[in-house]
Every structure is written in structure tokens, then in C-alpha cells.
């Protein structure tokens, strides 16, 4: 029914799309958690309210991404996850802490609220750092050495800063008043971290991998790819300009830092995707070598093509229902 050669490519694209959606969507709610140390209790309540209806569905994109890796590329799945055993465990414990702290902070006795807020922050931090660390080790071809761990530490920090920035963008978008003003300050500080992090990772990646270096710095690729860094630079400039003017009197452009951060992440993502293609395990296994049987991929694809638009539809519905500035969350 589907062309056997095309299926692995389609699944790589679907997996990439899930990872991208995950990084953007869970990125902002992880970022909100990372910003907790700079807040008061009332501010934390409002920030939680801004992500409360969404975080669970956001996290499901991670399950879909890992599910697609598992179902479409079963051999790569084992290789990648056993190589990343420890950071995966740290991330899982981080996700557990963060996810349950959402509920416990509001339902536990009042004196326990503060410890759960700390758990929420710690969980978000563990998740963000371990994801960045895994990205770094993955870029380095899943090798563990002093140099690769140093690089992975860099990417860990960069991703945590990027999440904080998109989180600050979300808070600017979804709140107003003093908290919004505070978030603008966070974003102003964070943007330099983002520039530093993205720049460092972009510079270190080709230096670490000759193959990636060749993919970027040969003619005519270098010209064709130039828009990626140029657009990123332009976007950073626009973000900086907007942050200097925010918040505006009529709250116009409050959405801009968030959307700008999303676009920046998309650009970074495409840069990475280009660097890795066609490998799923860097330098070792291509997406065709790792793919599952054609009949299994076909049956998943049929379901995916039918269900994914529906999922996207009701996800949009949820964002529409909870549009506007975040207010108090309640069950009635």
C-alpha cells in the first residue's frame, strides 16, 4: 500500500514532528517550572494556572515520539536508550516529580505546598538538563568520554536556558500586571543565554563531527543553508526589540516573545535534523537500516493519518477554550 522505501522516511518525519512539538509544548511548561525560584507563591499559582490544562497533553508528545522510535525503528530504540540509560532515568524521575507536584501542591495540606513547589522546580530542572544532556551525547554519536560529557553538559545548560526563555515568553503571553513585567525581565536575561547556548552548540557540533562539518561548510550547501542562521539572528534582534517595549499599554504583541521563541526552536530543530539525516543512530545506523517491517509500519501509518488530524483538532480546541489570560483554576 505504501512504498517500502518511503515508509522509514515518513516515520522519521513523524517522529521529528513529535519531538519538535514536544520540545516546544512541554518546553514552555518545563520553562515555567524552571522560573519558580524567582517567584512569590501567588505568582506560582498563576503560572501553574497558565499551564494546568495543557501540561499533560504536552507531555504526551514525548510518549508519541518515543513510541514512534520504538515502533518504527526498534533496533535503534534499544541502542539509543541503553546508551542513554542514566540520563533517561534522571529525566524519568524528573518527569515524575514535576507531574505529581502539579497535583500535590494544590491538594496536600497547606504547609506541604512549599516542598511540592520545590519538587516541581527540581523535577523541571532534572528533566530539562537530562534532555539537553542526552541531546549532547546523541550529537556526539552516543559515545561517553570526557570531551563528549563536557559537550553534553553544554547542551544541557543550553536547553534549560532555552526552556526558561520560552517559559518566560509563555508567562508574558498568558498573564498581565506585575508578573508579566517580571517575565519580561526574565526573558531579557534569558535571551542572551539562548544566543550563547545556540551559538555554542552550533559552533561545537561541526567541530566535533567532520561529517556534519562537511554537510554544512561545502558549496553550494553553505549558501543554501545560510537563511537558517540569518533568520535566527534576525529573530533574536526582533525579540530583543520587542522585549524592550513590552509590556505595551494595550497588551499588543504580548504573544510575540513566545511565538518568536517557538520559531527559534523550530529553526534550531531543522538545523539539527539536517545535520543528522539520514542517520538515526549517528554515524552507525540509517533510518532504513533500523526500520521495522513494512507491514507493521503500514498499519501504524494508516491509523496515524486518520487519528493525528483529529488529535491536532482537539488539541487546538483545548487551547481555544483556555485562551486569554490565565485566571484561577478550579474544578467548578
Amino acid at each position: 500500500m505504501f512504498h517500502p522505501e518511503a515508509l522509514p522516511l515518513i516515520f522519521a518525519a513523524l517522529m521529528g514532528a513529535s519531538i519538535l512539538l514536544y520540545v516546544v509544548l512541554d518546553g514552555f511548561d518545563l520553562g515555567v517550572g524552571l522560573l519558580f525560584p524567582f517567584t512569590t507563591e501567588a505568582e506560582r499559582d498563576r503560572m501553574i494556572a497558565s499551564i494546568g490544562p495543557f501540561w499533560d497533553a504536552n507531555e504526551t508528545w514525548l510518549v508519541l515520539a518515543i513510541g514512534l522510535l520504538l515502533v518504527a525503528f526498534p533496533t535503534a530504540h534499544g541502542t539509543i536508550l541503553t546508551a542513554l540509560y542514566l540520563p533517561v532515568a534522571v529525566m524519568l524521575i524528573g518527569l515524575i516529580l514535576r507531574g505529581v507536584a502539579f497535583e500535590f501542591r494544590a491538594k496536600a495540606p497547606i504547609p506541604h505546598k512549599k516542598p511540592w513547589d520545590i519538587a516541581f522546580w527540581a523535577g523541571s530542572l532534572m528533566t530539562a538538563l537530562s534532555q539537553g544532556f542526552m541531546l549532547g551525547i546523541y550529537i556526539m554519536g552516543l559515545q561517553w568520554s570526557l570531551a563528549t560529557v563536557a559537550f553534553a553538559t553544554l547542551t544541557a545548560g543550553a536547553l534549560a536556558v532555552a526552556y526558561s526563555f520560552i517559559g518566560a515568553g509563555w508567562v508574558i503571553f498568558k498573564t498581565d500586571g506585575a508578573l508579566q513585567l517580571k517575565a519580561v525581565h526574565w526573558a531579557k536575561g534569558g535571551i542572551w543565554g539562548v544566543v550563547l547556548g545556540m551559538g555554542a552548540v552550533s559552533a561545537a557540533t561541526p567541530l566535533a563531527s567532520p561529517r556534519i562539518f562537511d554537510k554544512w561548510f561545502t558549496l553550494p550547501e553553505v549558501v543554501a543553508l545560510a537563511p537558517l542562521p540569518l533568520m535566527s539572528a534576525l529573530l533574536v534582534a526582533l525579540l530583543w526589540l520587542s522585549l524592550r517595549r513590552l509590556p505595551t499599554r494595550d497588551d499588543s504583541f504580548a504573544w510575540f516573545p513566545f511565538v518568536g521563541a517557538v520559531v527559534l526552536m523550530i529553526l534550531g530543530f531543522f538545523g539539527m535534523a539536517y545535520s543528522f539525516y539520514p542517520y538515526i543512530v549517528p554515524e552507525k545506523m540509517t533510518i532504513w537500516q533500523a526500520a521495522a517491517a513494512t507491514e507493521s509500519l503500514s498499519i501504524i501509518l494508516v491509523g496515524t493519518l486518520v487519528v493525528l488530524p483529529v488529535i491536532l483538532g482537539y488539541t487546538v480546541l483545548a487551547y481555544v477554550i483556555f485562551r486569554g489570560k490565565a485566571t484561577k483554576l478550579s474544578y467548578d
Binding site: A57, T60, V63, T304, A318
Partner: peptide, 25 residues
């Protein structure tokens, strides 16, 4: 994986997103 994979994929597609999104609502 050729059997387990699609079954898990259908769980994510037909169940996880449904419950997660509508739970918020």
C-alpha cells in the same frame, strides 16, 4: 517489535491524547 509496536502506537494515538486533552477540559 513488529507486533508490540503497532499496538503501543494505537494506544498512544487513540487513548493517551484523547484522555490528556479532554482531562484539561
Amino acid at each position: 517489535g513488529n507486533v508490540a509496536g503497532p499496538l503501543l502506537a494505537y494506544e498512544v494515538l487513540t487513548a493517551f491524547f484523547l484522555e490528556a486533552v479532554f482531562l484539561g477540559i
